[in-house]
Design a protein around this nucleic acid. Structure first.
Lengths: 136, 136
DNA sequence: CTGGATCCTAACTGATACTG
DNA sequence: CAGTATCAGTTAGGATCCAG
């Protein structure tokens, strides 16, 4: 109970307006990108470029067509991806990132970095002592 | 429908192992930090340093005690915050960030930056033309 | 192949009241 | 002050089926 240090940054405590603006911006971002799949889809598109519906369904392991469809619509409405219907025999649809989607890359990178560090961090701690919520 | 460019990065298509590792890390991070309040709480603690339960309830506008309690427990289990019971008359509890929580700062900053840019971006587009999902 | 329709459940969220 | 208990509403997400 004793050996855990704490930190305090208090970056913009002295500027409430700036703080509120940043808080609102963060809530905007969360509302837009939260959920189980949005970042996953974006990362796939970053990696593979243009993809079709089925490609995304396969790379986003576990997603169902309905959910994928909904996620894609939301991303399109927010101008992060484009949807293009191709004039092929069984109709195909291509999805790709918009230039605006580049703005999400720092978020994705930060999430990945945190995930990598956190996994090693947690691993060690959980081996040393069980998580706090453990019954007894 | 025509004027929207697309981009393609295809950063690590040639290294599936690295890609999968990054994907898993991102999913870890999402599982841990997703939700309506986690980032909000972390940002508050960044800004104000040590806070008590009631402080957090007031700055995280809209949150109920039950939800706040749960979010705090999860953050504590994941070693992002510490919980300290103070020996005061009506007992008080202090919450603070752990050093490990510093790793979340790039994520938070990236989210804030994206939120700021996205708001201006979307504003203009929505004024020019309604979002895609509009009935008619 | 794309993805909508339907149904369903677990989880999240909220309001209120209550206890140590 | 710091929560937990209870009750209730909403929703995200999944399973399955089917249509263009």
């Amino acid at each position: 109970m004793a050996a855990v240090e704490t930190i305090s940054l208090a970056t913009c405590e002295q500027d409430p307006a700036l703080y509120n603006e940043r808080m609102r911006a963060m809530k905007d971002a969360i509302e837009l990108l939260s959920g189980k799949w949005k970042f996953c889809i974006l990362l796939n598109l970053y990696n593979y470029g243009t993809m079709r519906f089925k490609d995304l369904q396969e790379t986003s392991t576990g997603i169902t067509p309905k959910v994928l469809s909904k996620e894609l619509q939301e991303l399109e409405e927010n101008l992060l991806i484009t949807r293009t219907v191709n004039n092929t025999k069984p109709v195909t649809v291509s999805y790709a990132l918009t230039p605006h989607a580049i703005e999400t890359q720092p978020v994705i990178n930060a999430l990945v970095e945190f995930g990598l560090k956190h996994r090693t961090k947690i691993k060690g701690n959980y081996l040393a002592q069980p998580p706090v919520g453990t019954p007894a």
